[in-house]
Design a protein around this nucleic acid. Structure first.
Length: 497
RNA sequence: GCUGGAGUUGAGCAAUUGGUUGGCUCGCCAGACUGUAAAUCUGGUCCCUUACGGGCGUAUAGGUUCGAGUCCUAUCUCCAGCA
């Protein structure tokens, strides 16, 4: 009967719920998300495995460092969705067998298309937006002149054409050289209209049209516990008027996402329940952020509503907490909130303080692979020559497999002795020293380097996960403020810039 | 010992018939990275200088030439072949 096919999935409350365990201040809370593939203690960090696997890490690696949730990307898995569905969903497909999330693919509008960074720091001197991406370094801001803000062609009525700017040269894709670098042709052309997003897929060179319906149908096939509504992410080059237009489009896309979600859930009744989060945009404007929260919190399609919310878009670093609060004080308390794409410790503290429950980001793993290693006394660049003879662990207070291998049944000595490079290294410690890991990371031996990438990734992920565990505990025992001030002072107080 | 070939930067290679020669890759030294086109990218890497600038340089010593990494002579070193 068509009537029943349009009804809200009755399993919603049974298979997905959020239980608040403790509160702190106006907005912070610790809780448990009960999802089909398991429970998630919050706050927590969601590790990112875009293509269904976290680079350099196995599911066991993730479990060993306390990861509870993995996030993959609906766009990147588009062509494998049927296969993943046949395998029983993402958690079965990749062997993770624990809670998963998928992003809608909306983010790819920006990262594959116009490609501008999403976090912007305000210039302290003149208050102007310097457009440097989460960096106060002068070198970076000097090359970010106003000309570098993506061009916007909003000739009335037609689709918005967003092309890469000169600041994005690094993002040019080699195989595109034949066509996209030709004079007079825009590269990485991305078109956004009310129907969806059309852009050239840099992997295959194909023109792809992505819509809310395609995103949700794909995410259903992928089968993550939590899906994200299809949204448009604006950047700092976009003015207020464009954000008004974009937010309305995101609102309509949210409705279409929810409608398609209801349809898919009914079509796929034998499958595990999947939650859908609405994604809030609105840039840096309070009225838009509040409108987004009101709209999505009230949204109902055939009795279905969002199971939680994703807070996304471009944020001003200095006003992150304020911006989040505009939304979280409006959103319903009993639904989880995911802060999309942020994981720096200060961002996590600010996010939790203002009511966010989960976080995801590529930074811990990407930066680990690039040698930026998190320690309680600030980050270090492990590739620096000063660590070539540093026999200390990465972080003496860390309990990760690199810093504390015994706990994880790892055997540091085997690897230490496996290479001529490392033959002279001390091997009487029960941890991987900075010197050893640096040599492994810089090794020309592929296996040895891969081992370093894995260990360093696990270290950084463990660092962030442990931070969220401590934050959760501090909310429960009422010491959040003390933890925050102590922790941030130690971490950033000695950070080398 | 003879014959032939070759000597450029930390390494391996470039540099039109002699024509502004410090280039490329790797290594090294730094930097960046926030819902992953990223085990990637950017910059530097002869000497002096904070910088602006300046100086020198193609095994060594001479020579030819307006001009030499390139041509000539000698020496040294290495490689290959022959004895």
């Amino acid at each position: 009967m068509s009537f029943s096919n349009d009804r809200k999935d009755p399993r919603a409350e049974e298979f997905f719920s959020f239980e608040i365990t403790a509160r702190y201040g106006d907005l912070a809370r610790a809780g448990v998300i009960h999802a089909p593939h398991g429970s998630i203690e919050t706050p927590t960090f969601t590790v990112v495995g875009t293509h269904a696997a976290v680079k350099c890490l196995t599911p066991n690696d993730l479990r060993a460092v306390g990861v509870q949730v993995m996030l993959s990307n609906g766009y990147h898995l588009l062509r494998r969705a049927v296969m993943i569905d046949a395998a029983g969903g993402l958690a079965e497909f990749n062997g993770w067998r624990a809670p998963t999330m998928t992003d809608s693919g909306g983010f790819q509008i920006m990262s594959l298309g116009s490609g501008l960074g999403k976090i912007v720091s305000m210039s302290e001197e003149d208050g102007a937006i310097s457009s440097n991406v989460f960096s106060s370094s002068s070198a970076r801001s000097e090359q970010s002149e106003p000309d570098d803000i993506p061009m916007l062609d909003k000739s009335s009525g037609g689709p918005v054409v967003r092309s890469a700017s000169s600041a994005l040269r690094a993002n040019e894709y080699d195989s595109e050289k034949n066509c996209s670098n030709a004079p007079g042709r825009a590269r990485n052309l991305t078109e956004v209209d009310d129907e969806g997003v059309t852009f050239r897929d840099p992997y295959h060179g194909r023109i792809v049209k992505f819509t809310p319906e395609l995103s949700i149908a794909t995410q259903h096939k992928i089968g993550a516990d939590v899906m994200m509504a299809f949204d448009e992410l604006t950047s700092f080059g976009d003015d207020y008027d464009y954000n008004v237009e974009s937010l309305e489009r995101t609102r309509i896309w949210a409705e279409r996402s929810l409608r398609e979600h209801v349809r898919q859930a009914n079509l796929r009744r034998g499958k595990p329940y999947q939650a859908l989060f609405g994604v809030l945009q609105g840039g840096r404007w309070q009225d838009l952020r509040e409108k987004a929260a009101h709209d999505l919190a009230a949204m109902r399609i055939r009795g279905a509503e969002f199971d939680g919310f994703g807070l996304g878009g471009a944020f001003e670093k200095e006003r992150l907490g304020e911006t989040i609060k505009w939304m979280t004080r409006i959103l319903p308390e009993n639904k989880p909130r995911h802060l999309l794409g942020l994981s720096k410790p200060d961002d996590i503290f600010v996010g939790v303080e203002n009511g966010c429950d989960t976080f995801d980001c590529v930074a811990p793993t990407r930066e680990a692979r690039h040698g930026r290693i998190y320690t309680l006394d600030g980050d270090i660049n492990l590739r620096r020559s000063e660590f070539a003879s540093d026999e200390r662990p990465l972080d003496p207070e860390c309990d990760c497999p690199a810093c504390c291998p015994i706990r994880h049944c790892e055997e540091p000595r085997a690897t230490r002795q496996s290479s001529g490079l490392l033959r002279g290294a001390r091997n009487d410690n029960n941890y991987f020293s900075r010197a050893t890991l640096r040599a492994m990371l810089k090794s020309s031996e592929p296996d040895e380097k891969a081992r370093a990438l894995s260990l360093l990734s696990r270290h950084n992920v463990r660092f962030i996960i442990r931070l969220t565990e401590q934050i959760r505990a501090s909310i429960i025992d009422g010491t959040f403020d003390e933890l925050k001030s102590f922790w941030l002072k130690r971490y950033y107080g000695t950070i080398k810039s």
